[in-house]
Write a protein that binds this DNA or RNA. Structure first.
Length: 862
RNA sequence: GCGGAUGUGACGGAAUUGGUAGACGUGCCAGAUUUAGGUUCUGGUGUCGCAAGGCGUGGAGGUUCGAGUCCUCUCAUCCGCACCA
């Protein structure tokens, strides 16, 4: 029996289910129930992503313990879950805040540490001033915290990191092979990893004016013995500062080594260590850095931000051209977070460099002759100076003005330039990634404690496995800002497992994205590697697209890391073979004439307009948006279930829109779904008292009904498999209409009606399990409908004996004919031509050609 | 700017490989049932036209006997990334 691991992203226990959950879990349930009916061994578990900030916020606001708050919410939500009739395996349930779970996570952390996948470093990190914690790069959206929405600040802190970049190449190549993932998500991950091939190289320092070599200058610095009258003091002081940071020169990364001959300056990020060193001794540099930081935080109009530069007194040597030196600028458009935080600029072939060069009047030397003749014939090529360029040229072409690279195509020139740099031992060809290591330290209480101990003697010591889990203390207070674990009087004090001396526990907890990075493996088995290997990977994962980068990237990393420390037998390292990202549930928004958002329940229709109930405030309908508390356009699943029933809610959220798109919740739509439930019931009700001993026969009416049922069951089957639930539902609607009409038919189709009804109940189970079960037992179905196998479709019934063919004349439909399935092309052609309405169109014109596609169409060309 | 999508009735959306555009649902219209409203049921509903017929899948071209579907250009909307060297 093949296995099918069906999983929906587990919820955060906020306390209430929302319609988005209903849609998400309804979809997963359709897949799980369908797979089960098709004979798969199905795993469909559920649990709780239970660590997180809201619990701490509740603790601060209401004085409840985060754990109590969380477990109460879990109870409340589980009750809601149970009403939905989902085929979940609750025997595997856990919450990530269970010590069993996070203890195991701590063990994994230590395994990763042993393997060298974890390290600690002092780094500039994203600090969320509202949540009072650090955020990973992925968790900063548009310069704001992903949860709090507060503008992120930069702080320098010692932090724990996971070496996700070790897997950058693998994460990138493998994501492209996940053919059951949405293209969009694959691209987003690929872009996030951001691979680029190029050259990392060093521009060596030019000695200050007055010295013939760097050695000589250095010696002078070292002995503090130099004659200020001999040198340009600014240059001299700058170089002295810079040498302390980097004696070798400036390391840059470029993807365009082919344009090295067009270099006109080198630029450092304002956050580059050399920039910082210069700022310490020169207030102008400090001012410039401050200026840049200002713009950096007002993120929105980075596009409009003008290029700004500060000219240092530093100069570096051109790697290829003897005696040519380049000035070094600090430039606001160079990011410390990418490459080495320093670039060489070729203004003729990079727009940013171009803008900068224009502003500061630096040389612009074109070195790529465009292959496009029109552009190439422009005046600037002739001038060879680029004085007439109005924009950088970044297209294809051949190299010029470049000594040994002249005449080559760009690609060839790149590799030759890299070769030359390598020969001169100035650098090497490298691959650079945008992805950076995952900072996992969080200064929060309600998370998984990082299981290490800081000892003055022994340094960082892992907590021995026998001491796991490192439990969170229960007696914590949230009355002051910052990390409650840090404030706790005793918790952090311990003895070093190594030397036995007093030591301190790490008080940072793990980013909660760790918790969701391996929970699916825990579902598969608590600790049996063989059972995990059997279930993994997840065959169908269903969840929101908002996790396209964060959760899905981390989980992919975690499986690789777990594989490499021998914790999971998953050669590919890919946790999710199939991914489906569902759309949101939206609703109209309502605003009163005095500018308040109000809930759908507070709106009534009166005098042909919309009004707030029991007031005289007119209501206007706003945009259709994702249900949110702020816009008050929320529909509560509990109310819907009380009014319409769980089946109706499930049916409706799947019916109108394709699953990957947003669906708008409407009252009338929900009522329509409720009507349909009644309609289905009436079909079964009509059969409940009918005699069940109808004999099979092959009357036309019976055969037609059987065809309809088998075709519909087949269509539902295929639509579910292809995640086209809205189409499956449309097929069911048609099917029910046919069965309803058959109630008027003669007695001799009763057996076909029963056959259809049994098949229908079975096909309805994935969508409306309660209704299907009732209907099934109403007509005497054996056992549980949900335990029955998917109906066998009689393939012979899917093919019609005769087919209706449209007849086109010159490509326009003019008539229809009915012919036997087996009719020959000649017969079809003859029948078509004999059709009177066709004759009208042909009249006296001569027929040029007749195209007959059997089973499809006839086209007569005149 | 780069990347990914999406454009079809009043609305959500259907439409194997190019082969009857508008399935199904909502809304609307009409009729039946009902003491009324609601419910339920039946029929109708792309558009212009009395009709014959014409026109119609964001727009403009093209390929084809035949295009929502393929090609070229273009417009609009949404999403992601964004001074990525």
């Amino acid at each position: 029996m093949p296995k099918a691991y069906v999983l929906e992203m587990f919820p955060y226990p906020s306390g209430r289910l929302h319609m988005g959950h209903v849609r998400n879990y309804a979809m997963g349930d359709v897949v799980a129930r369908h797979k089960k009916a098709k004979g798969y061994n199905v795993l469909h578990p559920m649990g709780w992503d239970a660590f997180g900030m809201p619990a701490e916020n509740a603790a601060m606001e209401k004085g409840v313990h985060p754990g109590d708050w969380t477990y109460q919410n879990i109870d409340a939500m589980k009750a809601q879950f149970e009403k939905l009739g989902l085929s979940l395996d609750w025997s595997r349930e856990f919450a990530t805040c269970d010590p069993d779970y996070y203890g195991e996570q701590q063990r994994l952390f230590l395994k990763f540490m042993e393997k060298g996948l974890v390290y600690q470093k002092k780094a500039k990190v994203n600090w969320d001033p509202v949540d009072n914690t650090v955020l990973a790069n992925e968790q900063v959206i548009d310069g704001k915290g992903w949860r709090s929405g507060a503008p992120v600040e930069q702080r320098e802190l010692v932090q724990w990191f996971f070496r996700i970049t070790d897997y950058a190449e693998d994460l990138l190549t493998e994501v492209q092979k996940l053919d059951r993932w949405p293209e969009k998500v694959r691209t987003m991950q690929a872009n996030w990893i951001g691979r680029s091939e190029g050259l990392q190289m060093r521009f060596e320092w030019e000695p200050p004016t007055g010295f013939t070599s760097l050695d000589e200058a250095e010696q002078a610095f070292a002995q503090d013995d130099y004659d200020l009258t001999k040198v340009d003091s600014c240059e001299y002081e700058d170089l002295k500062d810079a040498l302390e940071v980097s004696a070798q020169g400036i390391e840059i990364f470029t993807t365009r080594p082919d344009t090295l001959f067009g270099a006109s300056f080198v630029a450092l990020s304002p956050d580059h260590p050399i920039s910082i060193a210069l700022a310490e001794s020169t207030s102008e540099v400090e001012d410039f850095r401050a200026e840049c930081a200002k713009i950096g935080t007002s993120e929105a109009d980075i596009e409009q931000a003008p290029k700004m530069g500060y000219k240092t007194g530093l100069r570096v040597k051109h790697p290829f051209v003897e005696d040519q030196t380049l000035p070094v600028y600090i430039a606001n458009f160079v990011l410390m977070g990418y490459g080495t935080g320093a670039i060489f600029a070729c203004p003729a072939h990079d727009q940013r460099d171009f803008d900068f060069a224009r502003k500061y009047d630096l040389p612009i030397l074109p070195v790529v002759k465009p292959s496009d003749k029109e552009t190439a014939s422009a005046a600037w090529v002739a001038s060879g100076k680029g004085a007439d360029m109005d924009a950088a040229y970044t297209g294809p072409g051949t190299i010029m003005n470049s000594d040994f690279l002249d005449g080559q195509e760009i690609a060839a020139a790149k590799s030759q330039a890299i070769g030359q740099i390598e020969d001169r031992a100035l650098g090497q060809g490298t691959v650079n990634y945008r992805l950076r290591d995952w900072g996992v330290s969080r200064q929060r209480y309600w998370g998984c404690p990082i299981p290490v101990i800081h000892c003055e003697e022994c340094g960082i010591v892992p907590v021995p496995e026998s001491d796991l889990p490192v439990r969170l203390p229960d007696d914590v207070s949230f009355d002051k800002p910052g990390n409650p674990l840090e404030h706790h009087p005793t918790w952090k004090h311990c003895t070093c497992p190594n030397c036995g001396k007093p030591a301190l526990r790490e008080t940072d907890t793990l980013d909660t994205f760790n918790d969701s990075s391996w929970y699916f493996a825990r579902f598969a088995s608590v600790d049996d590697p063989a059972e995990r290997a059997y279930w993994l990977p997840v065959d169908q994962y269903v969840g929101g697209v908002e996790h396209a980068v964060l959760h899905l990237l981390y989980a992919r990393f975690f499986m690789r890391a777990m594989r490499d420390v021998g914790e999971v037998d998953l050669p590919s390292g890919e946790p999710f073979a199939g991914l489906f990202t569902q759309g949101m549930v939206t609703h109209e928004t309502y605003k009163t004439d005095d500018d308040r958002w109000i809930t759908p329940g507070e709106v009534e229709t009166r005098d042909g307009g919309l009004w707030e109930i029991n007031t005289d405030h007119a209501v206007s309908v706003g945009a259709i948006e994702k249900m949110s508390k702020s816009k008050k356009n929320v529909v509560d699943p509990d109310n819907i279930i009380a009014t319409f029933g769980a089946d109706t809610a499930r049916w409706f959220v799947l019916s109108d829109s394709p699953p990957e798109r947003d669906v708008e919740w409407t009252q009338s739509g929900a009522e329509g779904a409720g009507r349909f439930v009644q309609r289905v019931w009436s079909v079964f009700n009509a059969l409940s008292t009918a005699p069940r001993d109808g004999q099979p026969n092959d009357s036309d009416a019976a055969t037609a009904l059987r065809r309809a049922s088998h075709k519909a069951a087949d269509a539902v089957d295929k639509a579910i498999e292809e995640f086209r639930f809205n189409s499956a539902i449309a097929s069911v609607h048609e099917w029910v209409t046919v069965l309803k009409k058959a109630e008027q038919g003669a007695e001799d189709i009763l057996y076909a009606r029963f056959e259809g009804a049994f098949m229908l109940a079975r096909c309805l189970t994935p969508f409306m399990p309660h209704l299907a079960e009732e209907c099934w037992s109403l007509i005497g179905g054996e056992g549980l409908c949900s335990a029955a196998a998917w109906p066998d479709v009689d393939q012979s019934l899917l093919v019609e004996d005769s087919v209706t063919l449209p007849i086109q004349v010159n490509g326009k439909r003019r008539a229809e004919i009915s012919v036997a399935k087996t009719a020959s092309k000649d017969d079809i052609e003859a029948t078509a031509l004999a059709e009177p309405s066709v004759q009208n169109f042909i009249a006296d014109k001569s027929i040029k050609k007749v195209i007959v596609v059997p089973g499809r169409i006839v086209n007569i060309v005149i």
